[in-house]
Design a protein around this nucleic acid. Structure first.
Lengths: 209, 209
DNA sequence: TACGTTCTGGACGAGACAGTCAAGAAAGTC
DNA sequence: GACTTTCTTGACTGTCTCGTCCAGAACGTA
C-alpha cells in the first residue's frame, strides 16, 4: 500500500493556519509554512495542493471550528439562554482585548484580504456569519421564551445587531482599542437589549459615568 | 530651481490608494501602481520613498479623509443631531450594501492586514477610530440635549456601541451579507438607542416581522 | 527478499518583484 | 546660451518565492 504518511494532518493544518493568520495570505511564504509544519515542500504540495488550496482548506476548517465553538457557548436550556448570551458577548470582548499582538480573527482577516478576489473565501465567510447569526438568533429566542428579552422584540433582528457588534469589537481590537473600551461596548450592547416591561426600565439603559 | 514635477500629488496618491485598496498591501505591485499613476518607478520612489512609505502616506490620508467625511455628516445644531446620526448610520449600511465588489473599507482592510506587524498602521487606525467615536459622541450628546436620546444615557458608551456596529456592518459586508440584512442591522441599532421616557417606550423596540 | 506504491526532502528552475541607476528632459539663473 | 538643479523614464539587477522534480525511504505484498 505504499509508504504511510508521517504527519498528522490536523496538526499540519493548524501550523499552516497559524502562518496565514499571523502574516496574511499574500505575505505567507510556502517555505515558512513547510518549516512550521516540519514537512518538506514536496509533501505539502502532494498532500494539500498549492498555496491557495491549502489556504482555503485551513480557512474553511477554522471557520467551521469557530461556528462549533459558538454553538457550544450558546446551546442549552432557555432558562440560562440570556446568561449564556451575555457570557459569550463578554468573552469575545475579553478575548479581543487580550489579543496583544493584534492578530485578530482569521475569519475577518481572510475575508478582508481575499473576499474581493476569491469567491470561495467570500462564500465561506458568508456561510460562517450566517451560521453564527442563526445560533445567536436561537439563543435570543430562548432568552425571550424564558422572559429575559422583551416579548415583542424580533430575535433575528437582535441577533443581527449582536453579530455586528461582535464583528465590530473584533475590528476595533485590530486598531488597538483599549480593553476597557471593548468591554464597555459589549456591556452597552447587552444593556440596550430590550428587556420585558416588568423589569425596571432603567436597567435596560447604559448608566452614566 | 530644477525641473518642476509633472504630476498632481493628490491624484497620484489616490491612484496608489486604489491599488492598495483593491489588492491589499502585500499583493499590490509597485509596477502596477506606477502604471496606474502614470509615473515611472523612479519618480514614484523619488517622490514618496519605497512601497511601505507610500502605503503609510495613502493610508493616513485616506483615514484623515474618512474622519472629515464623518465630521461633515455629523456636525450641526442639536435640533437635527439625532436625524443626522440616523442618516449617517443608514448611509454606511447602504454604502456597504452597494459595494458589490466587496472592496470594503481601506481603513479596516489595512488594519486587518498590517496592524499586527506595523505599529504605524495600528496607530493610524486607532487614531481614526478614536476620532470617529468622538464625533459620534458629540452627536449623541447633541441629540440628548435636544431631547431625542434618554437623558440618563451615557453618550460616550452609546457612541462606542454605534462605532462597533458601523465597523461590524463593514465586516459583515465583506462576507457578502445581503443589503437587506445590513439595513436591518442599522435600523435595529438605531431602534435600541434609549429614547426619552416621554416617547412611547415601544417605539424604541425593534418590531417583530 | 524482491517489487510496486506512496511518501519524503530538498535541490532546482522559471518567473515575479522591489528598488536602483544612468541618461536625458525641463525648468530657473546668470 | 551655458550651467545647475530637479524630475522622468524604463531597463537592469539581485533577491525572493512558488511550484516541480527526482532520488531515495518506508511501508505492504507475494
Amino acid at each position: 500500500m505504499g509508504r504511510p504518511r508521517n504527519f498528522d494532518e490536523s496538526e499540519v493544518l493548524r501550523a499552516a493556519r497559524d502562518q496565514f493568520w499571523s502574516t496574511g495570505y499574500a505575505a505567507a511564504r510556502v517555505d515558512d509554512i513547510a518549516a512550521a509544519t516540519g514537512l518538506g515542500k514536496g509533501s505539502l504540495y502532494g498532500a494539500f495542493g498549492d498555496k491557495h488550496q491549502l489556504f482555503l482548506r485551513t480557512y474553511a476548517d477554522h471557520c467551521a471550528g469557530l461556528v462549533e465553538a459558538v454553538r457550544r457557548a450558546l446551546d442549552g436550556p432557555d432558562t440560562d439562554a440570556y446568561e449564556r448570551l451575555r457570557a459569550h458577548v463578554m468573552k469575545v470582548a475579553e478575548a479581543t482585548a487580550s489579543d496583544v499582538c493584534l492578530r485578530g480573527c482569521l475569519l475577518a482577516k481572510g475575508a478582508a484580504e481575499l473576499s474581493e478576489q476569491d469567491r470561495a473565501v467570500a462564500a465561506t465567510a458568508r456561510r460562517t456569519f450566517t451560521a453564527i447569526e442563526e445560533l445567536i438568533t436561537s439563543c435570543v429566542a430562548g432568552a425571550q421564551r424564558a422572559g429575559d428579552i422583551a416579548p415583542d422584540a424580533d430575535p433575528a433582528r437582535l441577533a443581527g445587531l449582536l453579530l455586528a457588534v461582535l464583528r465590530g469589537i473584533e475590528a476595533l481590537g485590530k486598531g488597538g482599542s483599549s480593553p476597557d473600551s471593548l468591554r464597555a461596548i459589549a456591556e452597552t450592547a447587552l444593556a440596550v437589549l430590550p428587556r420585558p416591561q416588568s423589569d425596571q426600565d432603567r436597567s435596560a439603559r447604559p448608566q452614566s459615568g
